[in-house]
Computed example of a mutant assay.
Amino acid sequence: MGPTTEPTVNDGLPKKMRALQYSKPRDFKVVEIDMPDLGEEDVLVKISACGVCGTDLHFHEGEFMAKFPLIPGHEAAGVVVAIGRRVTTVAVGDRVVADPMEPCRSCFYCVRDQGLLCENMSGYGGTVPGGMAEYCRYPARHVYPIGDLPSLEAVLIEPAACASHGIERMSPKVGSTVLLFGCGPTGMLLAQLLRQNGAANLTIASKGGPKLDLARQLDLADSYVCISDDNPSEDMKAIKTANPHGFDIVVEATGASSVLEQSIFYVRKGGTLVVYGVYDDAAKVAWPPSRIWTYEITVLASFCSTLKFPVVLEYVKTKKLNLKGIVNKTYRIEEWAECLEAVRKQQVVKAAIVFD
């Protein structure tokens, strides 16, 4: 959509802005670029904070739909500072979050109401400029008011939207037993939603460290298994001993193909394995078909989300989703290399880039 000549703006907007920009995989720097053009159905958001997740590590490597030059950032929150002349849903001054996924609405899958599978998907922070910049342009239909929700909690709305899509995909039956491998930020959100949507008994299995510590602190599960680096096989064996029939649902949310490969052996007869993590493009797994066949195991995946922000905001509004404390480290865009390394080494629970 071309720029309009009649945007509604705040006085004093700059002509240039700072942004974190990749010219190619692994090659990034902070640059000064022109402010985005504003279409008649667009809004301009001054970014307050933008969450960092494992997907950003894949973008860094040029994977997962990355299109260069690239301004990353798909978990953004900020303040509307300008609107196109046809925008009526938000106003200048509104604090908002932005849904980063934009289906084309005309491909084979979109016209069959499967927008998440769009063949021409645009992703803010993946294929079009995202929230690792002082300002970002979004279609007005992609932003949602958040009132006084703190920015460092608001950046979790996007991963929570992914979790809500996962809940719909797996459709837990009331009284389900669930094993969740991994308790990263998205796993923490998924755990909360699972316990409110059918999971009567939830076990979290994860490496020790700040993430598992916070999961315990937030009381996210009914039991916890710490998978040690020294003897992980014994810890995994203990899960089977305590649950000889396995679990109705096993969710692999670590993004480690080795864990995914073993997860099938924790699914009970008639149960479901959920492929939830984000894996390297080159990753492979090998499962015995006889196990899937004789146990009648359902294997399904949950990829990202679209149109789930309103659902998540209902949970937030009614205080059924606890977002406090998950973001525990903030960085400026000039500290991106340090931030990436901390995320890669799992030294933080959740990192965010901040501008305010």
Rank of each mutant, 00 (worst) to 15 (best):
N231I: 13
G198N: 06
P232Y: 06
A256Q: 09
I204L: 03
G208H: 04
L194E: 07
A221C: 03
L212F: 06
A242H: 05
I204G: 00
A256I: 14
S206D: 14
V225D: 01
R195N: 09
A215G: 00
S263W: 10
R216M: 11
Y266N: 09
T203S: 04
L218A: 00
L273P: 03
G208M: 02
L212P: 07
M236R: 10
I264D: 04
L214I: 06
T241K: 11
I239S: 01
N243E: 04
Q196F: 03
S258K: 10
S233A: 15
K211H: 14
N201I: 02
L214N: 08
E234L: 14
A221D: 06
V251I: 15
R268C: 11
K211D: 12
E252I: 06
A238N: 13
F247Y: 09
A221G: 01
A215C: 01
A205N: 02
P210F: 07
E261W: 04
R195P: 09
S228V: 13
A215K: 04
G198V: 09
G255D: 01
E234C: 10
A253D: 09
G255E: 01
T203H: 09
D222Y: 01
C226R: 13
R216T: 04
I239E: 02
N197R: 09
Y266P: 08
I239C: 00
I227G: 01
Q192G: 03
K269C: 10
L212A: 01
N201F: 14
K211L: 06
K211Q: 15
K269P: 09
T272F: 00
Y276M: 12
P210W: 05
L194M: 06
